[in-house]
Amino acid sequence: MEKLGVNVSWLLAQLINFILILFILRLLVYKPVLNMLATRKQKIQESLAYAEKVQADAANQQKDFERKLDDARREAQTAAASAQQAAEKERQRILAEAQEEAQKIKEAARGELDYERKQMVSELRQQVVDLSVLGAQRVIGANLDDKKSRQLVENFLNEMDFGVKAGA
């Protein structure tokens, strides 16, 4: 033992040295560092949980937002479609109205024309009758009974039939 250098005072010095270092390190390093590691671990776990929650929230919001956007888009589409439909209907209505109007105008014009023609024909008849009576008076030189002669011409014309009845 002596040869190896085992010596009670040196051994005691080493023992005291170790115990001293043990307590100093325990006080300065192990406790604070282990505490710090535990605190950090907890903090990280909390942060991760929070991040997950935020992410889920964000995803939810995103979904919500997309759904709303879809709704809005669909609404806009239906609105546009209905507007188009209304416009088409309006167009059809206006077109029909216009056609109707045109038809009416045409018909009115035709009626007027018809009436005028009839008028003209009846006037013409009147004059023809008058002229015929006058002509005949000259020819026979007698004053024909106006009423009777007129009746005669009228009858003649009726027999001739211009396709239009007198007085019609």
Binding site: Q14, L20, I21, I24, L25, L28, V33
Partner: peptide, 29 residues
């Protein structure tokens, strides 16, 4: 009796304690 090994042990002690002290003086997250 102070030996070279005791002397070195004192140095080790000082170094270790100094390192422990300065590394954990201001613990931050």
């Amino acid at each position: 009796p102070v030996t070279p090994t005791i002397l070195t042990m004192v140095l080790v002690f000082i170094l270790l304690v100094a390192f422990a002290f300065f590394s954990t003086r201001k613990m931050e997250l």
